[in-house]
Every structure is written in C-alpha cells, then in structure tokens.
Design a protein around this nucleic acid. Structure first.
Length: 596
RNA sequence: GGGCCAGUAGCUCAGCUGGAUAGAGCACCUCCCUUCUAAGGAGGCGGUCAAAGGUUCGAAUCCUUUCUGGCUCACCA
C-alpha cells in the first residue's frame, strides 16, 4: 500500500470517528504538500466543513490532533494553514517503502497482464519522399506510447500503413522516367528515399513551369492547373498501375524498393521498429469490396453519376464520398479496408490507436462513424492519437516537401549527433573509451536530446522547433537527464558491496525524503501516461526527479558521511533514482549512458 | 460561414478530475569546483494566466460571450 493510500484511509476513518458519519471517498482529498510548507501530504479540509460544522482551522486542528495522537508511528507531526492540514510522515515509513522498491523488478510498471492487445499505428509515410521532422514527432510518439502501454500491462502490436500507391508515387516515377538518366541509389550514391524525393520535387518544378506557361498563354489558373501535360501523364500512369500494367508495376516495385531501403536505415537510426506492416496497395481493394457490400446492405447510397456516398447526417456531418464516379477509391476507402484487415488478422484486438496529425481529426471522426454504420462494434475502441504540428519559427514558413522546405529527418539526426560530439569532446574525459564507444555515446546524446525535445511537449499541442538553435544541453533537456543518470552510475562505481537494504531508522534530510517521495510517484505517472497516451507526463516526471536528485547531490556529501547507515541510504537513493531514470527514459525510447 | 483545437514570463513549455503566494528551462544579473561528473547547484530579475461577465468558501482550471491564431468541412493523400 502506498503512503498516500495509508494517509487517505487514516484520514477517512478519523473523520468518520470524530464526527460520527460515514463519508464518501470523494470527500477526502489528499494532495502533495506544496514545497513552501512543512509536511509531505496534505488533507484539504474545506469539503469536510459541512460535516464538522466548524471553521476550517479548527476542523483541521481536530483531525490533525487525533491522527498524531493515535498514529504517531505513521504521522510524526502536523501543521495547519488555513483549510490545509499538512502531515509530516515519519521517515521510517518512507525508508521502508524505499526498501521495497529497491528489490522490485521493473519498479513502477504493471507486472500482471491486462489481457488486452492494443495495436498502435504510427509513421505511415508516403513512399515518394524521405521522412522529415513531422515524421520524427509521429514516430517517437507512437513508439513511446507503445512502450508506455506495455508498461501498463498491455500487449502491443506496433504497425504502420505504408501509402505505397497513388498519384504521388506516380509523379516521382514519371519524373524519373522523363529525366532519362536511369539514376539508381547505387549509381548516384543517393539514399533511396532521398532519390525518389528528388524526383518528386523535380515533378513539381516542371508542373509549376508548365502551369505558368499556360497562364502566360491566356489560360485561367484553374484550368491550367488541371491541363498540364505532365499531370495528365501521371494520371495515365496511375490508371495503368490500377490496371496492372506490367511495365508500370515493375518500375513501381523497383522505386518503392529503393525507398524501403532508405527508410530502413532511417528507422534504425531513430530506434523505432514495427511488428507488422500494412500496404495500401493491398488494402485499398478490400476497402472497395467493403464499400460495395455496404452499398448492397443499404448502408451507403449511389448518386446518378455512379459515385458512392455515406450519409452521415445522423452524426451531424456532411456526406462522405467513398467511391468516385469512375469506380476508383479515395483515401477513406483504403482506410476502411485497412481497419478491417487489421481486425481480421487480430480478432482479439482491444483497441486500435492511430498516431496521426491533428489535421486529420475530421477524417478519423468520419472513418469511425462509417465503421459503426457498417456495424463494426470494435470501431468504438478505435482511437485517433492526434498530435499537433511541428512548426518552424516565425518567418521560416511552413514545411512543404514539394517545395523542399522541410527539415529532413536524416540530416537532422546526423547534425545533432555531430553537435553532441562537439559538446562532449569539449567537456568530458572519455579518451579511454574506444572510438566505437565514443561514437555510440555521441549518438545516444544527440538522439536523446532530439527525442526528449519532441516528446516533452503535450502531444495534443503544436510545437515550435528551431533547427538553427539545435538542441540545448542545459536545463529541461535529454542530455541533462542523461547526465544525472551518469552521475548516479559514477557513484555506484565507487561503491563496493552495495546492499539493496537500508536501515529504516536513520534520520533523513528534507531533500532526501523529498527524493524518496518523488521516486514513489513513478508508478502513478506510468499509469497516468498510459491513460492519456502522453509521453510528456513521463518526460516531465523524469526531469523533476533528476532536478531533485541534483539538488540532493550538490547539497549532501555521500562518501564523506561517517555514519555508515546514512551513507547506505544515500547510495541506495542514487541507485534507485538511476533505475527510475533509466526505465523512464526507456519509455521515451531514449538510452542513457553510464558515463558522459 | 459551420465544426474542432489552442492563447500562461521576452522565448520554449508545465500546471491532474476547481484548492495555499501561478511554476520550470532558455535569455539576463550574482554567487559556488583543496567533495563523489560544474552538461551541475544556490539566489535575483521577469505575469492583468487573451478580454469581459457568470458559477462558489475558493477559478489559469468549469459555463457564456468576444478577440486572436491554427486545422478542417475536396470525385487530394
């Protein structure tokens, strides 16, 4: 039982005894005591005034008095400030908790299985361009949420939908053909996904030139945008693809292959992975079938031109197109197919989480509504993990792949690793590490900084990333936390014969007690992060813990302490803080170095 | 125009289902390495929580209105 629960139960029974009434759990409100006041936990007495029929101070005094008198082995002393009753819990209680934690495997995590299998989709790139900054937030978020759900006892399947077909890839294919250069990753030395991206940009350039020329010759803008030769050619290519034209399919396979090779390298550097993959080229046909089926069941309707629609007026939304007049599918069609296939592959799925930017909020609302309409009850367990865009600072404009104004994922990762290298060589003494170990360290720090930066902000909110300022090393950053971990390990290296057992009767400094309390919050934080799909909660928690540890570290000497029992407590605290930082950071997908 | 989301220090962000004097980091200014990692610590400066009403013992938090910004409402993906 946690200390908080202990105090909760104690308060409740004392209040009931004191005023002779049964009270609901909701009326007992236990908070952590604010730092400016003496105490560890606080009972808010305002809700109890109706029962006590006395003023706040007097009520608090009465309760405090009775608790301390009858339970002085738990609560040492109390004080009252207005309607707040602050308890100071005996240090021995906290130290006993610490002893429990020291010997707990996977401290803070849920060890018993929930029996639930949750599928988490993230990344889901188009295959016509390399990954960029926005994908980084998406991937780190999806990966981290997966880890957090596992820590809450769920079984997780990480997946993605690869948008491998459509007009976008045809544009790259066409531009590549038209260039006549037969460039390959090998011949050009360009990473596969970047090579395809290059031709996507090339397409857009030609397209814009052609549009401009048409407008110049007197055509209006709208017509010009639809009638360029190059766009028509791309559309023809798409039709050939759908018809299964061998030549187009072969080119498509070849160029997608290059992209996958490139992605594999990027994912490896990012430290993310997937348990299963879905390809749009496989699922869009299933979607079409389902729509036809829905049409025959009367869930959808057909317009005169042959297009198929879903009536969503009952959901107060506009009708949604599902098949074009010519029978071809739209984005929504494919998503319906993908969802169905996933549940078919995993009938025991308890939830399906889509990690997709908030620009698609409406899309997912519609998708889930349509699935319900088709009679799939499981759609109620589908959840759109919607996150805010990553924006560049004012004046730098928006990121647009077509215009080449994106922050490329590969470039960013390598430049941050390089920054980490410079910073590390400047301050650390790591000459005795091998070159390999050093490079690994630079990577750990650079990636740690990047991941922490992108994950510490509430996923729902948009965030601003300034690539020019790069990643900070001081303050609320990944490297700060990594550094704190390295400190704890440095302590442990100097200790021989560390025992995971401390004397529970030693006296504690306030900062030590604060540290124990902070460690104890880990479990609740994991739970909350799981319920809210929010790595940010973990990030903020680990940061607070690291700060508290650093304050402790700086103000109290460990090895100069003559009292062996006190020294053991401080070493144990260092150990346990290290453990929590390590596993907390792991939930964020961030590694921590023993030295830096 | 309809819908959704956001607005907290110069900048980037925390503030849980309403609770004490609104917190961090960066930047700026002081101090602290004859102690275990100074990528650190201690302190200072900095706020009309977008605005106005309302709900109540109590509001950054809940409700209403207004202002500002973003996204979205495609036979695009």
């Amino acid at each position: 039982m946690s200390v908080e629960k202990l105090i909760f139960d104690l308060s409740k029974s004392v209040v009931e005894e004191l005023y002779g009434v049964d009270i609901a759990d909701g009326q007992i409100q236990i908070n952590k005591t604010r730092k400016d006041f003496d105490g560890d936990l606080t009972l808010v007495v305002f809700p109890l005034l109706k029962i006590s029929k006395k003023g706040p101070e007097q009520t608090a005094e009465e309760i405090g008095e009775k608790i301390v008198n009858s339970n002085d082995s738990i609560v040492e002393r109390f004080n009252v400030v207005k309607g707040f009753l602050n308890f100071s819990v005996k240090s021995s209680i906290w130290l006993k908790e610490l002893n429990k934690w020291l010997n707990e495997e996977e401290f803070g995590q849920t060890k018993t299985s929930s029996g639930k299998t949750i599928m988490v989709e993230y990344s889901s790139p188009n295959t016509n361009k390399p990954l960029h900054l926005g994908h980084l937030r998406n991937n780190f978020l999806g990966y981290s949420v997966s880890e957090i759900l596992k820590a809450n006892g769920h079984h997780v399947i990480k997946t993605q939908i690869i948008n491998d077909r459509g007009i976008h890839i045809c544009k790259s294919m066409l531009a590549w053909q038209l260039s006549g250069k037969e460039e390959t990753p090998e011949s050009s030395g360009i990473k596969g996904d970047h090579l395809i991206g290059k031709y996507y940009v090339a397409f857009d350039k030609s397209y814009k030139e052609e549009v401009a020329a048409l407008i110049e010759s007197g055509m209006d803008k709208e017509t010009a945008e639809k009638s360029t030769k190059i766009l028509v050619q791309a559309q023809e290519m798409l039709q050939k693809w759908e018809a299964g034209d061998e030549e187009v399919r072969a080119l498509w396979k070849k160029m997608n292959g290059w992209v996958y090779e490139g992605f594999a390298v990027t994912y490896k550097n990012m430290g993310v992975d997937f348990d299963s993959l879905y390809y749009e080229s496989d699922t869009y046909l299933i979607g079409k079938e389902v729509v036809e089926e829905g049409l025959s069941k009367g869930a959808f309707y057909k317009k005169e031109d042959g297009s198929v629609w879903c009536d969503l007026s009952s959901e107060k939304m506009d009708d949604k197109l599902l098949l074009r007049g010519d029978g071809t599918s739209v984005y929504m069609t494919q998503d319906i197919g993908t969802a169905l296939l996933r549940y078919k592959d995993n009938p025991s799925l308890s939830a399906l989480i889509y990690t997709v930017g908030n620009e698609q909020n409406h899309h997912f609302k519609v998708l889930f509504a349509i699935l319900i309409k088709l009679g799939y009850e499981w759609a109620k367990e589908c959840y759109h993990l919607s996150y805010g865009m990553v924006e560049l600072p004012k004046g730098m404009g928006r990121m647009k792949s077509r215009e080449g104004t994106v922050v490329d994922a590969d470039d960013l990762m390598s430049s941050l690793t390089n920054d980490a290298k410079e910073a590390t060589l400047e301050r650390s003494q790591i000459e005795d590490l091998s070159t390999e170990e050093q490079n690994e360290l630079f990577r750990t720090i650079g990636m740690g900084g990047l991941k922490y930066f992108l994950l510490k902000v509430d996923p729902k909110k948009k965030m601003i990333f300034n690539p020019a300022e790069s990643i900070e090393l001081n303050g609320n950053t990944g490297p700060f936390i990594q550094y704190t971990f390295a400190r704890t390990q440095s302590i442990l290296r100097s200790v021989k014969g560390f025992k995971k057992e401390v004397d529970s009767e030693v006296e504690l400094f306030p900062i030590e007690q604060e540290l124990i309390i902070a460690i104890g919050d880990f479990s609740a934080t994991i739970k909350e992060a799981g319920e809210n799909y929010s790595p940010a909660l973990i990030a903020n928690y680990v940061y607070e813990l690291a700060k508290t540890y650093n304050s402790f570290y700086q103000s109290i000497s460990i090895f100069k302490e003559e009292d062996e029992n006190k020294k053991q407590v401080r070493i144990a605290l260092s150990y346990q803080v290290g453990e929590v930082i390590k596993s907390g950071m792991k939930l964020l997908g961030i590694n921590v170095p023993d030295r830096m």
